[in-house]
Design a protein around this nucleic acid. Structure first.
Length: 550
RNA sequence: GGUCCCAUGGUCAAGCGGUUAAGACAUCGCCCUUUCACGGCGGUAACAGGGGUUCGAUUCCCCUUGGGACUACCA
């Protein structure tokens, strides 16, 4: 077979050879040890938390080594393409502070960098050149088989075949050995074709392979004639990956573990083109428990897979980044404990320390981290972040916040600052309900039966009469205590020793007041809240409570 | 079905042949605070099972079991 003739037959209009591109995009001039890394999302929806996860790895490593982190849009599947998804990807990366140095920048803005285009659908000419090279070398052949199944078709067929025969038939490659005359004939008849790899690999032969996360592995050679260019003329991931990462000078490819099984195929393409493959780091996949089973976080089913979810909920950027970092390198939290105020960039991150288990997304942990992050903010900073969030996601509340700026900051100042700040907020969306007693006039709550005693009534009635907003914290305590004691409430220790003998403890008395004033059983310092609310409001609310006690 | 990956408490996880098997989150209790928290102290809770190798296995090997991924002209 005359492969040159075949190449010209298949690609009559491709005149540039791959050397043209190899010299057009020369090696980057970077310091020794600098890594070039990339994120290549396909614009088929929102940016997945897994993308943030691998982008963060790339951003940290390239920062550390003085390298380059770029964003490439892998839009080779027109069927799944969603307009604007690429813009979301770029904007989200920037929002989370994982800003690319180079590549696609979204929203019609010009791309940055000398290795573009960074949008795969704009690189078809380049792919064709590499495809033609492969044909010339006898490494690829056109396939005229009609087979375009949907995902569901494939699953159905597999299930059916498995049920019948316990094996799945591998499709034979009838087109592999077509004569040039047959090919010419097919072409003349306008039959659609895809370009396939003429695999020379033998799955019985294994090679050593080093993955930056998994370590040294043995992998089998690829034996499949995988598709290099689809019948629509666009290459699927495999060829695009090989071509782009070569031309763009990627040194480390960070990608999800789901790619690991196709490493052999990718390596075979590199070899067929006589190109040097990059280093690979296959990351674990973030999972969750669903009906008792562990599974990958799903774009469709799980709202928390979308990085915008955290923004909508009002998690600060730092919280999410710290949580992901914690997932990445488990010693991050030890470092954070020792360096509570240090910048994240000072953490000694290591790709090797990434675990190989698929971690489960843990909201408890995220919330805890977030509470700590927010507890370090000043009241003004909390207010500012809260307001910015509310302006987008809760306009009504934003108005309330703006009209009550001083009051809100005063509220947020309670128990804030100092060495042991309160940790009660993990996301901005919870604030309105958490502190509703300062934002709303009418608060609803139910009173526990233990407060419904004559003693409690008498206590509250007297307290309403005597409450004085000018009392400082000590005096305030002293007053509650004194009144409570006179109505058969007891010192906490005495009460504990003999609960049956008393109407309740001092703590109970305080909590009754707390409930009446705030409608909550847990709040920041009550004395401060009451001062903030003002004597009229406090007394009115307690009066309502008193009436409810009957 | 085939190929591959993974396996320490409820969750995230240290550990790399000899440990009372760290730590964090969650949970429970106590202390502090004459309130709520914060904080401090402590408790419950783990090496999936079976074979090897070894003086000795959580650690190395094999099998089983369990979970996951891939097996598309999707990425």
């Amino acid at each position: 077979m005359d492969y040159n003739k075949l190449a010209d037959l298949l690609y009559p209009n491709v005149d540039k050879n791959i050397d043209y591109y190899l010299t057009k995009y020369p090696k980057r001039n970077l310091p020794t040890g600098a890594e070039v890394m990339r994120l290549g999302p396909s614009p088929t929806g929102y940016l997945h938390i897994g993308h943030l996860y691998s982008a963060l790895i790339s951003r940290i490593v390239t920062n550390k080594t003085g390298g380059v982190f770029y964003l490439r849009l892998e839009d080779t599947d027109q069927k799944r393409y969603i307009k604007g998804a690429g813009d979301v990807a770029y904007n989200m990366l920037c929002y989370y502070g994982v800003t690319p140095d180079e590549g696609y920048t979204g929203d019609g803005k010009p791309q940055i960098g000398d290795y573009g285009s960074y949008v795969q659908s704009q690189r078809l000419e380049i792919y064709n050149s590499f495809a033609k090279e492969l044909v010339k070398n006898g490494k690829a052949f056109p396939c005229f088989c009609e087979r375009s199944e949907s995902k569901q078709d494939i699953l159905d067929r597999r299930e059916k075949e498995l049920a019948e025969s316990e094996t799945i038939t591998e499709h034979d490659e009838a087109c592999r050995n077509l004569s040039i005359e047959q090919i010419e004939e097919n072409l003349k008849n306008g039959k659609p074709w895809a370009l396939k790899l003429r695999s020379t690999g033998d799955p019985n032969i294994t090679h050593d392979f080093v993955d930056l996360i998994k370590g040294k592995r043995t992998i089998r050679e690829n034996g499949k004639d995988i598709v290099l260019v689809k019948s629509d003329g666009i290459p699927p991931y495999a060829l695009a990956h090989v071509v782009d990462d070569t031309l763009m000078g990627t040194t480390i490819v960070v990608r999800g573990e789901e790619w690991y099984p196709s490493v052999a195929a990718h390596l075979e393409i590199f070899k067929a083109l006589n190109l040097k493959p990059p280093k690979y780091a296959h990351t674990p996949v973030i999972s969750k428990i669903d009906n008792g089973n562990k599974r990958k976080l799903s774009k469709r089913k799980d709202p928390e897979a979308d990085v915008r979810y955290y923004i909508e909920q009002g998690y600060p950027i730092d919280s999410v980044i710290e949580y992901v970092l914690n997932l990445l390198n488990s010693d991050f939290e030890n470092w954070r404990a020792k360096n509570p105020h240090a910048d994240i960039s000072e953490f000694d991150f290591s790709i090797k320390k990434i675990g190989s288990n698929n971690p489960m997304f843990d909201f408890d942990k995220l919330n805890n981290i977030s509470k700590t992050v927010i507890s370090k903010y000043s009241a003004e900073k909390v207010y500012e972040n809260l307001l910015n969030w509310a302006k987008v996601y809760n306009k009504e509340f934003a108005e309330v916040l703006e009209n009550n700026k001083q009051k809100t900051i005063a509220m947020l100042s309670i128990d804030r600052g100092g060495d042991r700040p309160r940790k009660d907020i993990y996301a901005w969306s919870m604030v309105q309900e958490l502190y509703n007693y300062i934002f709303e006039d009418n608060i609803s709550y139910t009173i526990d039966d233990k407060y419904k005693s004559q003693n409690a009534k008498n206590f509250l009635a007297e307290y309403i009469k005597k409450y004085d907003i000018s009392l400082n914290k000590e005096e305030w305590f002293a007053q509650i205590k004194q009144i409570a004691l006179s109505h058969n409430f007891a010192d906490n220790k005495d009460y504990k020793a003999n609960p049956a003998a008393f109407a309740g403890s001092i703590a109970d008395a305080c909590n009754l007041v707390r409930l009446g004033v705030t409608g909550k059983t847990t709040t920041p310092d009550l004395c401060s809240i009451m001062q903030l609310l003002g004597e009229t409001t406090v007394k009115a609310r307690l009066q309502t409570t008193l009436e409810k006690l009957i």
